[in-house]
Amino acid sequence: MHASLRPGSRHLPPGLVIIYEDRDIIVVNKPAGMLTMATETEKTRTAYYALTDYVRKGNAKSRYRIFIVHRLDRETSGIVLFAKTEVAKRTLQDQWEDTTKIYAAVVHGQMGKASGMLSSHLVESGVHKVYATRDAALGKLARTAWTVLKERGGYSLLDVTLLTGRKHQIRVQMADAGHPIAGDKKYGVKGDTFSRLALHARSITFAHPFSGRSMTLDAPVPSVFAQLVGRVEAEGAEEKMRL
């Protein structure tokens, strides 16, 4: 499988980078601040809209389409996987529980141990905010594994693996554990002035929907995270693919 030369890339907005593309899928590195898909108030400034325009090469009458497999919060940067056919979408979603999703997060405080597991039940309130509860009857089980990569001052850089996929899961569980993510305006520390949410979807491993071949795609940790914890990656800034 080879990525195309992407002749329609001129139609992509700044910051949205295609990591991999073939006839079945497109995988992108989404910038913080961009929606994955439309909302009632924002229809066009989304990754979905931009990629639809990209596959149509700017021709609104083109029959080419993009299908949403999953999403990231607007404030979260990193890898988002889209399908180019409905069959590919269904296949990817059917195997989603077997897909490995790893994030980089900078949280407030030091964790006190090298790694751990967060397990709680999450409930969404009527104001689109999520909170954690120990009452299994109220919410959906959420499990998150974390490992400390680096600590500096009052911050820790974590490698975070989603074991379930709940709304705002990492943000809520880290805040509930007393280590909110830096720059989180919804669940974070009052007065936190960091320029963005320090959460980034850095790696995804999945079976290709057509060939079944295992693929791992990586996106570099944003350089702005270094303002909190120093240099976070020694491999440079290029997106990577491992087959």
Rank of each mutant, 00 (worst) to 15 (best):
G165K: 09
G139N: 13
R202K: 12
F210Y: 14
T205R: 01
L217F: 07
F206S: 02
H200N: 11
A201M: 03
H179F: 15
V221G: 02
A145R: 10
T133V: 09
K129F: 14
D184G: 03
S211V: 06
H200V: 00
Q169K: 03
Y131K: 12
K167E: 06
T193P: 00
G178H: 13
Y131M: 13
G139S: 06
A132Y: 09
K129A: 15
R143L: 15
V172T: 03
Y155F: 15
L197Q: 03
D192W: 06
G191H: 09
F210L: 11
M174D: 07
I181E: 04
L217H: 03
L199F: 10
T133Y: 10
A177M: 08
V172G: 10
T147H: 09
L141D: 04
G153V: 02
Q173C: 01
T164W: 12
W146M: 05
R166M: 07
V221Q: 02
T216K: 07
P180G: 04
H208A: 04
S156P: 05
V189H: 10
P209R: 15
V221Y: 06
A182F: 02
G183K: 09
F206W: 06
A201N: 02
S203T: 03
S211M: 13
T205P: 00
Y187Q: 11
D159H: 12
R202L: 08
T147I: 00
E151P: 00
G153P: 00
G183Y: 08
V224L: 11
G154S: 14
A177S: 13
E151D: 05
A145T: 01
R152V: 05
M174K: 02
R134H: 14
A136G: 04
T216L: 01
L163S: 00
A201I: 00
R143Y: 14
Y187R: 11
Y131S: 06
I181Q: 02
L149N: 09
I204Y: 09
K185L: 09
S156V: 05
G154D: 15
A137V: 07
T133L: 11
R152W: 12
P222L: 14
A219G: 00
F194Q: 04
A132L: 05
L157A: 10
F225A: 07
S211W: 12
Q173G: 04
T205M: 03
A142M: 04
K140Q: 15
G178N: 10
A136L: 05
D135G: 04
Q169W: 00
P209W: 15
H168V: 02
D218H: 15
A219E: 11
A136R: 10
I170L: 05
G153N: 09
K129T: 15
R213P: 00
T205K: 02
K150Q: 10
P222W: 08
G212M: 13
R134L: 13
K140P: 01
T133M: 13
G165D: 08
K190W: 12
G139R: 04
V160M: 08
P220H: 10
P209A: 14
Y187M: 13
I181Y: 08
A132N: 08
D159S: 13
